[in-house]
């Protein structure tokens, strides 16, 4: 008994300095990544040492705080030694070049369905207000209605009231909210997404029909076209991602519901990461171009269609194509190597 106590004392005395040194090393690692190979080897050896010590401590002093200390030291060291290489810029580039276009291809069914839903709700809203003009009160505020009845569009004096930059900031905040909700509410089996997409479609159609009754629909289109293409595209994409959440929850396939949900969120995340920055551009256009009478219809069309085209080309993977074909070549090379080693 006494000899084993001596052994434990000897072990503690010999090891405590190592633990404290490792503790400090790990503290430093949080601030900056491992620089030299020697540092790395020190860490790896430190981890192995602590693993041995922890096993021993669990045997000879269970429930003691020395054991608890070693446990958390081990967890921290393990995390740093085994952490995957992280390169956020590389990840971001890959999201734009490869991942987002791949996700768009994967969920093109949902995208098509969402766009169809949006357009048919737009048509419904238009028909409703055209047939029953009194329904305009559902989609437009009393102020908007009285202004329109005087032959003015509510967007006309926008820049007299607010500077462009403020309009842009407010619009970006609003669009971001709508986009994120259109996606996130898909967690309710897709129903929240369907609600937001339908409501926005109904409103747009209804407002156009209402403006049309006073012969202002042409001017409303002129206001909307420069920023609207990308704005509505982003909302529809977010909606498709939200529908994907509902799909994962209703028909998870061979996986569990949580796994399917997690995968749908991760796919949607990549998509939103690429699509959402375009909202900033759309907001700037809506603040600086759309309310400014200096821009002609032609210029507005070019801006709107051009920006929309850029958006869909990026998400279709057509802008950064050369890179991805390089990746395919690389994949083909690896496949060839694998095939050769299989046969060998």
């Amino acid at each position: 008994m006494d000899r084993s106590r001596h052994a434990i004392e000897g072990w503690l005395e010999a090891r405590i300095e190592h633990w404290q040194a490792l503790d400090q090393d790990l503290q430093r690692q949080l601030d900056m990544p491992v620089e030299s190979a020697a540092d790395l080897m020190t860490l790896v050896q430190g981890l192995r040492g602590v693993a041995r010590d922890l096993s021993l401590a669990r045997e000879v002093m269970p429930g003691n705080r020395i054991t608890a200390y070693l446990e958390q030291l081990y967890v921290r060291a393990h995390e740093i030694v085994y952490r995957p290489a992280r390169n956020p810029w590389q990840d971001l580039k890959r999201a734009f070049v490869q991942d987002a276009p791949r996700v768009v291809r994967e969920i093109r069914g949902s995208i098509l369905a969402t766009v169809t839903l949006f357009l048919s709700c737009m048509l419904t809203g238009w028909l409703l207000v055209a047939e029953h003009p009194e329904l305009a009160a559902l989609f437009a505020s009393a102020e908007m209605i009285s202004q329109t009845q005087q032959g003015e569009l509510w967007t006309d004096g926008l820049l007299n009231i607010l500077p462009s930059s403020v309009v842009a900031v407010a619009i970006i905040a609003n669009n971001l909210t709508v986009t994120l909700f259109a996606f996130a509410l898909g967690a309710f089996f897709g129903l929240g997404t369907l609600y937001i997409i339908s409501l926005n479609g109904l409103m747009l159609g209804g407002v156009f029909a209402f403006a049309g009754q006073y012969g202002l629909d042409g001017r409303l289109f002129e206001f909307v076209v420069a920023h609207g293409v990308v704005e509505l595209s982003v909302v529809c994409l977010a909606g498709a991602a939200g529908v994907g959440l509902g799909e994962a929850l209703m028909r998870p396939g061979p996986r569990t519901r949580v796994e399917a949900f997690r995968e749908a969120v991760s796919r949607a995340g990549t998509l939103l990461l690429v699509a959402v920055p375009f909202l900033a551009g759309a907001g700037l256009i809506e603040g600086y171009v759309s309310p400014d009478p200096a821009y002609s219809m032609g210029q507005r069309l070019v801006i709107g269609v051009g920006y929309g085209l850029l958006f869909w080309l990026v998400l279709g993977g057509l802008v950064f194509r050369s890179r991805s074909s390089h990746g395919e070549k690389e994949k083909a090379r690896l496949d060839a190597v694998a095939a050769a080693s299989d046969s060998g």
Partner: peptide, 12 residues
């Protein structure tokens, strides 16, 4: 780390 030192002193 301090708590570890106390515990070690006690153990020794």
């Amino acid at each position: 780390s301090e708590s570890l030192q106390t515990a070690t002193r006690l153990a020794l």
